[in-house]
Design a protein around this nucleic acid. Structure first.
Length: 268
DNA sequence: CTGGCTCCCTGAATGC
DNA sequence: TGCATTCAGGGAGCCA
């Protein structure tokens, strides 16, 4: 599942290949991929625009064009890459071709991914919480944000309006790194624990990026962070700190992995 | 405000 | 072997 480190890796990979390219045309194979505007208008509006920059915000890839911004959210199974192949692959939902002949492919097996073409990307991105790797993401900020809510840490960290970019993998890994229980109520987190959690989130995300993200299932290949998982997908395996079998539970409708010995709610 | 649940999708895993 | 069922997972939307 592409989360912040995977999206960062993908954005970095395509940036040099796409900068200054001019779009000539696009093929929409699954209309629902286009979240905005209507498919027909999208197709017209994107034509002839030139790529000026590529950035990431949360789990969104932003492809800045000279008129609009192309926002891409990969959701569960999306991938974005340059292709030289003539025939489309299975699950190529959107293919954008360049004047130079290059083709950018949005491939998405489960069809959850979405693409927007808008001159007001802020309207979509302003719902997001702070960037966890930015300078503004201090322990003090996290502490005040946590105290302003009364929610269990796991579902709260997954909430993109709280912090942008964490998904199921990096949330579980961050909570383990911080030694905090996924069940813990955010309002009970102390200042010291906020420091731990901020440091843990940044450490885990940075390590993810260094490893080009994680490759799990058949989705997204190329990353190596899966070799460094402490809890994610390690159900029943011994905790690397204390040896207790890693537990998997359902929390907020999401599979949640943690060490019941190392990750406590203030001793409980 | 919070939590719980459903929906969108496909492919892998499991059951018989 | 083959068919049917179940499940995972990000985020929107709905309801309590």
């Amino acid at each position: 599942m592409p989360e912040l480190p995977e999206v960062e890796t993908i954005t970095n990979n395509i940036r040099p290949k796409l900068l200054n390219e001019q779009i000539s045309d696009c093929a929409i194979n699954w209309e629902r991929t286009i979240a905005y505007p209507l498919a027909a208008r999208f197709k017209e509006q994107i034509k002839n625009q030139r790529v000026t920059a590529l950035t990431r915000r949360g789990k969104y890839i932003q492809i800045h064009l000279d008129q609009d911004t192309l926002l891409i959210h990969l959701r569960m199974s999306g991938d974005l890459y340059l292709s030289t192949e003539q025939e489309p692959n299975k699950h190529d939902q959107l293919i954008i071709s360049m004047v130079s002949g290059k083709k950018m492919v949005f491939n998405d097996t489960r069809k959850f991914g979405r693409v927007w073409l808008t001159d007001e990307p802020v309207k979509i991105l302003s719902k997001l919480g702070p960037e966890p790797l930015s300078r503004e993401f201090t322990a003090e900020l996290l502490y005040s944000l946590l105290r302003s809510k009364k929610r269990q840490l796991k579902p709260l960290l997954l909430d993109q309006s709280f912090i942008a970019g964490l998904g199921n993998i990096y949330t579980d890994e961050s909570l383990f790194e911080a030694r905090l229980s996924p069940y813990m109520n955010s309002a009970d987190v102390t200042e010291t624990q906020s420091v731990q959690l901020r440091d843990a989130i940044q450490k885990v995300l940075r390590k993810g990026i260094q490893n080009n993200g994680a490759s799990i299932d058949w989705v997204y290949k190329g990353g190596k962070f899966q070799d460094h998982f402490q809890v994610y997908q390690r159900t029943g395996s011994p905790c690397r700190i204390c040896g207790t079998p890693i537990k998997k539970v359902k929390l907020g409708q999401r599979g949640t992995h943690f060490c019941p010995t190392c990750q406590t709610v203030n001793g409980e």
